[in-house]
């Protein structure tokens, strides 16, 4: 077992009744890494997380935490903590008791618990809130209590199940930065779940794109974005056109479609639609072989008429060969 890996999944499978949710997941996660499981809902990312936490048992495969096989260990015996999507704060305990819950179970002396809770409150900028009950907190504050409650136990791996899903966009952005800062400061390995590709790209060291119980691609945000291996990844991360050329498939990012006089424009296309999407102009083209392409451009082509014929093209290096699903 390589000591650089804090967590390793080997051939993890899970089925609920007849539905196979995980079809053999292999994943190695390095110490201190921020890794995101990215995928649409129902792709199996939450099940993966629950299996790591021990809240669900896998049908096959093994899980190693820091070199130790934890596959059949009870959740309370794993040095892994979870930030739940619904936060799952204990409604009958105040903020301090919520955060101190794990430490109390470890029979840590009371004054030490109080000290650690204070540190945590400071870390998540909630000092002075210790006596509040969860119902008296805003969504963002609950979120931070949930994180503090998990992090205070100093887990080897922190699991976060769409922790920002319930927050509004502005708060979400803020919390993304906050979480990233926290992760750097604490040096804990984060496994983060989201269906939001932008969030994944913003925060992660590596992204694992999941689809129908399979890891489609694991790589840095850069790799995932610029070198998608499959058409699913290309379509899910960023906005890419999948173009068929003979038997091959290529992904071309919408922003890489060129038009109007740029040297690579060697294909004739008809403009089908155009629409403004927040500072961006999105144009839908149809090629002579009936394939459709979307281009996103910055305002400059506003005079393009729907129904007109234009020349479009792309740089050769921007057409990335991908495997079709």
């Amino acid at each position: 077992m390589n000591n650089n890996y804090i967590l390793e999944l080997k051939g993890v499978r899970k089925a609920f009744g007849d539905t196979e949710v995980l079809k053999g997941i292999d994943l190695k996660i390095a110490k201190g890494e921020f890794i995101t499981l990215l995928g649409a809902s129902g792709c199996g990312k939450t099940t993966t997380l629950r299996i790591i936490a021990g809240l669900e048992t896998s049908d096959a495969g093994q899980i190693f935490l820091d070199g130790q096989d934890i596959t059949s260990l009870e959740p309370n015996k794993r040095s892994v903590n979870t930030v739940f999507q619904s936060y799952a704060l204990f409604p009958h305990m105040n903020v301090a008791d919520n955060i101190g819950y794990g430490l109390k179970l470890k029979r840590m002396p009371k004054d030490l618990i109080a000290k650690k809770v204070q540190e945590m409150l400071q870390l998540v900028q909630l000092s002075g809130y210790e006596k509040r009950m969860p119902e008296q907190l805003s969504g963002g504050q609950r979120q931070r209590v949930a994180i503090a409650r998990a992090v205070v136990n100093e887990p080897k791996v922190l699991l976060l199940d769409e922790p920002l899903g319930a927050l509004d966009l502005k708060l979400r952005r803020q919390m993304q930065l906050e979480l990233k800062r926290l992760q750097k400061q604490l040096g804990i390995t984060f496994i983060y779940i989201t269906h939001d590709q932008e969030e994944a790209i913003n925060m992660s060291d590596r992204i694992a794109v999941m689809n129908h119980g399979v890891l489609e691609q694991v790589g840095t945000p850069n790799e995932i974005y610029y070198q998608p291996r499959t058409s699913y990844v290309a379509g899910f991360v960023g906005n890419a056109n999948i173009l068929r050329c003979g038997g091959e498939f290529y992904a071309i990012r919408t922003e890489n479609i060129l038009m109007n006089g740029e040297p690579e424009c060697n294909r004739e296309a008809v403009v089908l639609e155009k629409s403004f999407a927040g500072g961006q102009l999105r144009i839908l083209f149809e090629l002579p072989d009936a394939q459709q392409l979307t281009a996103s451009r910055y305002g400059i082509d506003a005079d393009v008429q729907v129904g007109s014929r234009v020349m479009i093209g792309w740089k050769k290096e921007n057409a990335i060969p991908v495997a079709e699903e």
Partner: peptide, 18 residues
Amino acid sequence: MDWTLVEASRDLGASAFK
């Protein structure tokens, strides 16, 4: 009851009884 709370408790180190 929100049974996620029980999962949270187990996750934070509580035995099933606790």
